[in-house]
Design a protein around this nucleic acid. Structure first.
Lengths: 348, 348
DNA sequence: ATTAGCACTCTTGCCCTCCAAGTGCTATCT
DNA sequence: AGATAGCACTTGGAGGGCAAGAGTGCTAAT
């Protein structure tokens, strides 16, 4: 990080102007155009001098000798730090967001709409994830016999997430067996976290070896078929607005790779969890995304964790081009993150 | 349709050769190259004559005067009719497909994997839909109180589809109220189709006006909150492999529009339901997709209905470029459609 | 009926030139 | 000393001309 100290007020102003011009135009910005569009009448020559310094300090680079300057990742980083927390969301966007999110019936739908509206108000891809971690408290389970050896397990957690799972058992259990089992689980373990329930049931069926206890046999059967697995992560990952990325990407091969990655929702989830700390409160802007995934060069992640209910946490983010309206997007993400908790408690 | 009769065996052979060459090369095919690559040593001049006839008959067109010929939609149509039912799926693909689909736990997952594998074996977008029409027979319902005025409704149909829905009621019902209601519904209506159940409950609560019947009040409350709505169609539509389309599309604006449409799964569903008759048995190839959706120019739909269980029907399809390996894709779609019923009955 | 020949058309790639935009440097101004 | 004006230099992109390649239609010959 050379010459960080050289950033005085004049340099900062010019750097900001360059970045904003570049964001809106998409083309390398030169000293002349900048001097024209900028209100304070600095001459091109002066600006050139400052630009040279900024190149030196690592904030700008030039595609080739006689072209304008383009902001580097470092410049975006600096810019984002400068503007953070300054903006207001337009009333239009506010109402678009709250109208879209109002009246959702469950978390999945809420996440889906969140990702959608994120992609609408930004120029990037909207992502919304519920970290369906096993830390969720059990509300109740329900088993229902669907046919010979076929059982449907429904696991509901306090936060309102539903996991349904059709299973094939080794042995055929009657509906009465199943009801006995679910009553047992609900009576004993309501409020426990799902993984603790799982562990405890495992312990009990291990301990209670008597082959003649019908309940224990049923439990064992259900346990071994994975009745309590809540991990179907792909169901709780929503990605929307991929088409937004088409505009800024000229290289077909790269675009294809990018879309492919975004289609593998699991990888998107990894990305978020790598960069978003669920304990942090504010919006986070990650600028060098290509370090984690090379196909994501020139993309930034603007994300925030979101608390839902008591225990359940989620993340939401926009993945968009470095050339994006940071101010607007950051504000939008922050706004939705704040709504998250409130709306879900209201509606669900 | 002018001059359809002009298609003799010679013309047909040449037309087929042109189409296949064009599919594999992607460039307008001229008489010279065709005469070289085609085993029967016809001279370019002869081929030119035939080509002229084929242009006349509407099977070919030339982008400009001195370029080769390109097949028209009519040509693809003809070609597909010729080759239908001729091919075998490669063992590699067969095992890829069955390995992917084996071990699925529920319909959603099955559909998801189907769309994925369809996109893998073709050069297009894989689509799988469960027509969660209200014609499904009710297996049982289950209501569970999640908090003040908050109720989770789970509706399970015979075919194993689960609809869960978090509702907000006007009045607060106790879990006992809810259990009474669900027992009532399960005892009286098991096996009915969901829409008939809905209609009948509507009739009964209308008829039984006594305000003092607690059960009826609960039912009314649940009914009015939409407890029996099974229509969250977007949950049962899976689209995968959009990135495949990037390769063949050079115009960014069109590509963007296309992706946008594909992201609106509802529209994809409309497309399938417009062109696929669930009563038909075989694979259907639709060639002029732009008639229904202008952004889908140069795309074809290769789809088939799929029966699942008894009543439940679904559709699966590939949406890909006109320039695709028809033989291969048709066979794959047909193969998976046949597997559909079998696998789901086995596993679920 | 098929083919060979030929003149014609059209696209593509290439090279060349010109031009606009931008730069760095130096001399000058305040 | 900082800001500006002037100037020579660089570079990518747009446009024009040119030759090559591929393809066509037509006519005449087999």
């Amino acid at each position: 990080m050379p010459n960080q100290g050289q950033i005085g007020p004049r340099e900062r102003e010019i750097l900001t102007a360059i970045i904003e011009t570049y964001i809106s135009s998409g083309e390398p910005v030169g000293s002349r155009t900048l001097s024209r569009h900028n209100k304070d009448g600095l001459s091109p020559a002066t600006i050139r001098n400052v630009m040279a310094d900024l190149v030196e300090a690592g904030f700008l680079e030039q595609p080739h000798t006689s072209a304008g300057r383009v902001p580097t990742a470092q410049a975006y980083r600096y810019y984002v730090d400068q503007i953070s927390g300054k903006a207001l969301l337009s009333p239009a966007d506010q109402s678009l967001i709250s109208e879209t999110l109002q009246g959702t019936v469950d978390i999945q739908q809420f996440l889906e709409r969140t990702s959608h509206v994120l992609s609408l108000v930004s120029s990037g891809v909207g992502v919304a994830i519920a970290n369906a971690g096993p830390q969720n408290a059990l509300e109740h389970v329900h088993f229902s016999r669907q046919g010979p050896n076929k059982v449907l397990a429904v696991v509901v957690t306090k936060s309102g997430v539903v996991h349904d799972r059709m299973m094939r058992l080794q042995r055929d259990l009657t509906q009465t067996d199943l009801d006995t089992a679910s009553n047992y689980i609900n009576a004993n373990f309501r409020g426990w976290t799902v993984d603790k329930v799982k562990a405890e049931i495992g312990r009990r069926i291990e301990h209670e070896r008597s082959e003649y206890d019908r309940l224990m046999q049923s439990l064992r059967e259900l346990y071994e078929s994975g009745a309590l697995a809540t991990s179907e992560p792909a169901r709780n990952i929503f990605v929307d607005g991929v088409s937004n990325l088409v505009v800024n990407e000229e290289d077909h091969e790269r675009l294809r790779g990018l879309l492919k990655t975004l289609e593998e929702k699991q990888r998107v989830a990894e990305l978020l969890s790598a960069y978003l700390d669920t304990r942090q409160e504010a919006v986070r802007v990650v600028i060098g995304l290509e370090e984690a995934m090379p196909e994501m060069r020139n993309l930034v992640l603007i994300g925030a964790p979101a608390r839902v209910g008591e225990e359940m946490r989620g993340s939401l983010a926009v993945i968009g081009p470095t050339r994006m309206d940071y101010q607007h997007t950051i504000t939008a993400v922050s706004y939705i993150a704040q709504l998250f908790d409130k709306l879900l408690n209201e509606n669900a």
